[in-house]
């Protein structure tokens, strides 16, 4: 499966992740399914509500954020296809903590931010048996 993301949206994610550095930041991905691809149509920034002193390596949203964004996606004829977050000074690969809190059929975009510079974005999906994340192909589009 390929995930398609416009260059401008990728830029907005990078900018947000650099702004929240050295803490983690994140948000939701709204999109559509097109054949064997998922196309990201919009990103919605969501505040990190984890305890402030732990935000350098932890990110969380409230259940109310999920409700609001899932309803918004429905209203806009889009799908809540995943979420994105950063790993400051840490690789763009899912941690065990990520796996324990993940759902299948949902995209996890992780951006590594090294010394304040967003430099690597990877997309992951949890296997249905919850055992491991598989990396998905990311295609960055010139036009959003």
């Amino acid at each position: 499966m390929t995930v398609r993301l416009g260059k401008l949206l990728r830029g907005r994610i990078f900018e947000q992740m650099e702004d929240t550095y050295p803490n983690e930041g994140g948000g939701f991905l709204l999109g559509e399914l097109e054949g064997n691809s998922t196309v990201i149509r919009d990103i919605i920034q969501v505040d990190n509500v984890f305890e402030e002193e732990e935000q350098y390596h932890r990110y969380a949203m409230t259940p109310q954020d999920w409700m609001r964004l899932e309803d918004e996606a429905d209203d806009r004829g889009l799908i809540l296809v995943g979420y994105y977050h950063s790993h400051p000074d840490s690789p763009a690969v899912p941690s065990e903590y990520d796996r324990e809190h993940a759902l299948p059929n949902f995209l996890y975009i992780i951006t590594s931010v090294e010394m304040g510079q967003a430099n690597d974005m990877r997309v992951w999906k949890l296997r249905a048996d919850r055992s491991v994340f598989d990396r998905e192909e990311l295609e960055v589009l010139e036009i959003d």
Partner: peptide, 10 residues
């Protein structure tokens, strides 16, 4: 409602 949470590896 799933609680969304994540975190990097130190």
């Amino acid at each position: 409602i799933p609680s969304i949470a994540g975190g990097g590896i130190i």
